[in-house]
Design a protein around this nucleic acid. Structure first.
Length: 497
RNA sequence: GCCGGUAUCGUCUAGGGGUCAGGACACGUGGUUCUCAGCCACGGGACCGGGGUUCGAAUCCCCGUACCGGUACCA
């Protein structure tokens, strides 16, 4: 079984295309097949190497490695269409020689006029076949004389083209709605329908899984397979991805590309998991399935027929799940850029990284995305009693007599004691404050939170306090901005009451 | 216009001639004796419309409607 993903390098990898790539990859994985990456860059005006590079990077980030194709090679290459021009030329010649295709000299203006006329007459607009009646010898003369021409396929005049779609079942198209379409453009660059057929055949693709926008291209391609005497691959068309308003997902809906989701701090396993669930279901209730588990269960028959609305909330849910399951060291590494952006650290030492690996998971337990790490960890790296008390709400809470007593007692308690290095030490200190003030529960902990973190909500104090104490003990060569300890914080806060 | 595809809670879906139409995300309420998140419990919420076939239709058939795609020298 050989499958391929064949993006056009004309922009970022869209989540809809990423999903198509994923389905191809899963299918190959499931059946021990080969996954091939081909670049369809025949739109030379819009294709760029930069886009190609970005798409490859996104695919790798998602974990969708390919066995054959661009950058990895293989014996069915080259894998970039603009490097296969001679192949298309030879195959076009073959069809010309058999008069299954012909040169067309019609000007774009004539074509457009015909199209309009057909539209107004209520007929399907399609090429009338004018140049198909030019004798081959004359056509050849004109081409050799340098007259610009495209090569068109001579579509049989009557009948129908049936094909079986692996997700939708049998589909038919009447031939009388298909005009003689262009195989090779006047510049010698092949048109999509021709290039795909030649490539899929030569690369021995057995299953074509692609977006449903290609469903009406399929009969044209089947016709070409027949003209060459080739057996068509199996086709499977998956539905498109929509925005919340049920229109095609676009920038105005927010993030649409894999790169954007990565930049916001979604984990690749969350994206692939979510994308697989969009239009596919394992049947039982299981939904949280990492990539290899998906590969074990994926079946084309279980792919839905209808378009799916991209739901960021559900993606976030999956991301939260994987964020909590992720390795601490990996989390720290991934969160680094967001914290560097805040100016909290630079050139971290090994000790710093170990500290971050301890602290980032605390944040990861309650956020949707990695770009929310700074907000969650600000209490560590950017504590300021003065700024906290400038907030009217916090100020009011801190000045409430009971709260104020707690904070003053806390500062006093911490002045002479040891660092609160673990949960028990913190709880013991809190218990002593409780005894001195008679405050307990919320009345005890909330003021404590205010004084020690400068915030009214955040990480559990049991964890936050030991974390900040550990931060205060980082060595002088640390790349992390200095973190004040609990004693210091309580004193600073209390002195302003 | 023509051709093709699609239609179950707001969203993703399971199911499919007789079911209390199930699950997940989101939402609401309560609990978890600091907060947010999480977790637990409970709750509201769907078979596009109209005909037909049938004892019985969400399920099968027909006709509509809506949405999506195509109708390119773009893929």
């Amino acid at each position: 079984m050989r499958l391929r993903f064949a993006p056009s390098p004309t922009g970022q990898l869209h989540v809809g295309n990423a999903r198509t790539a994923l389905f191809n990859w899963l299918m190959a994985r499931r059946h021990g097949g080969t996954f091939i990456l081909r670049i369809e860059d025949t739109d030379v005006d819009r294709s760029t190497r930069e886009s190609e590079r970005a798409i490859l990077e996104d695919l790798r980030w998602m974990g969708l490695e390919w066995n054959e194709g661009v950058e990895v090679g293989g014996d069915k290459g080259p894998y970039r269409q603009t490097e296969r021009l001679d192949l298309y030329r030879a195959h076009a010649r073959e069809l010309i020689d058999q008069e299954k295709a012909y040169y067309c000299f019609c000007s774009p203006e004539t074509l457009e006029a015909d199209r309009q006329a057909a539209l107004e007459a209520g007929r399907p607009p399609m090429y009338p076949g004018t140049c198909g009646r030019i004798p081959a010898s004359e056509a050849r003369r004109r081409v050799e004389a340098g007259e610009p021409a495209v090569i068109r396929f001579r579509v049989p005049k009557a009948g129908e083209v049936p094909f079986t779609d692996l997700v939708r079942g049998p589909i038919w198209f009447d031939l009388d709605v298909i005009g003689d379409f262009v195989l090779v453009r006047s510049g010698g660059i092949p048109a999509y329908n021709f290039a795909v057929v030649v490539d899929d055949k030569l690369m021995e693709i057995t299953h074509v899984i692609r977006g449903e926008d290609h469903i009406s291209n399929t009969p044209r391609q089947v016709l070409l397979y027949e003209a060459f005497g080739w057996k068509p691959p199996a086709f499977a068309h998956v539905s498109l991805v929509m925005g919340p308003d049920h229109s095609p997902l676009s920038k105005r809906h927010g993030a649409t590309s894999v790169a954007e989701f990565r930049a916001r701090g979604y984990l690749p396993e969350a994206l692939t998991n979510y994308l697989a669930l969009l239009g596919w279901s394992p049947g039982d209730g299981d939904e949280l399935l990492p990539l290899d588990e998906l590969a074990l269960r994926f079946r084309l028959e279980d792919v839905g027929h209808s378009a799916g609305v991209f739901d960021v909330e559900k993606l976030a849910w999956a991301n939260r799940h994987y964020l909590r399951a992720a390795d601490p060291g990996r989390l720290a590494r991934l969160a680094l850029p967001y914290m560097e952006r805040e100016g909290w650290l630079s050139e971290p030492t090994d000790e710093d990284l170990a500290y971050l690996a301890r602290v980032v998971p605390l944040a990861a337990a309650s956020i949707d995305r990695l770009d929310q790490v700074p907000a969650r960890l600000r209490f560590l790296f950017d504590y300021s009693a003065e700024r906290a008390l400038a907030d009217p709400t916090i100020r009011a809470e801190a000045f409430e007599p009971g709260a104020r007593a707690v904070i003053v007692a806390l500062a006093d308690e911490l002045r002479s004691g040891d660092r609160l290095r673990d949960r028990d030490a913190f709880r013991a200190a809190a218990a002593r404050v409780r005894e001195r003030t008679g405050q307990k529960g919320k009345a005890l902990f909330h003021p404590t939170r205010l004084a020690l973190t400068g915030e009214s909500e955040g990480v559990e104090l049991d964890l936050a306090v030991p974390a900040l104490e550990a931060g205060a003990e980082l060595k002088p060569d640390s790349g992390i901005r200095r973190i004040p300890g609990a004693k210091e914080r309580a004193a600073a806060f209390a002195s302003r009451l």
